[in-house]
Nucleic acid binder design. Structure first.
Lengths: 95, 95
DNA sequence: ACAACATTTAGATGATTATCTAAATATACG
DNA sequence: CGTATATTTAGATAATCATCTAAATGTTGT
């Protein structure tokens, strides 16, 4: 996992909002675009950042491109953050 | 909690390293500075960002200024991230 | 009060970032 | 095949950011 890319991706509120939407299921670029007040080009840039962090996957379906969460990296992220919190309870407590 | 400030603070690797060091206990600005190859002024800037996110606290002790983790915000952060991950196991699963 | 030490503030600089418009690419359909 | 639709790429711009040097502030001990 590219830790730096993941944290950087998370630093933008639009990208976090995109991730939250994708929790509920995959969406096409257009559907996501309809939720934000910015151009498709800008959204496309955000997708690129999210993909670079491997937080989302995309797949062409017909004339749409459908984005979905990469849940395994999301879990890596969870671990990462838990690792940042001292004396973390609820999990391993490992080295 | 100021979510945006927290994520922004986490986006820089130096700041994440500082947080990790502070897990093991409080440190003065000088002690932290000794661990990184950058000027004290730059470090001071990073402290400011971490403080704005309320991730660290500081306290003057003699001629040093001692920094320590604000663990409660770190836990808020944990919740935030878990909330970003779908079907999160390990905790509440609440709405 | 002064000199030494520790840290922050101020101001500048170059790099990165979010955003836009316009053009390019890819797919579907008549 | 050509037109409409969906998305990305290219290029530009303004804002934000990490970093530096120099100066200011606050603290201690003499």
């Amino acid at each position: 996992m590219k830790q730096q890319e993941v944290f950087r991706a998370l630093a933008d509120p639009t990208r976090r909002a995109i991730l939250k939407r994708l929790q509920k299921g995959s969406l096409s670029a257009g559907e996501i675009g309809a939720m934000f007040d910015m151009t498709g080009a800008t959204l496309s840039h955000h997708f690129t950042v999210l993909k670079r962090a491997d937080l989302v996957r995309n797949e062409r379906r017909g004339r749409n491109i459908v984005y979905s969460l990469n849940t395994s990296v999301m879990e890596d992220l969870t671990r990462l953050v838990l690792d940042l919190v001292p004396a973390t309870r609820g999990r391993g407590e490992g080295k």
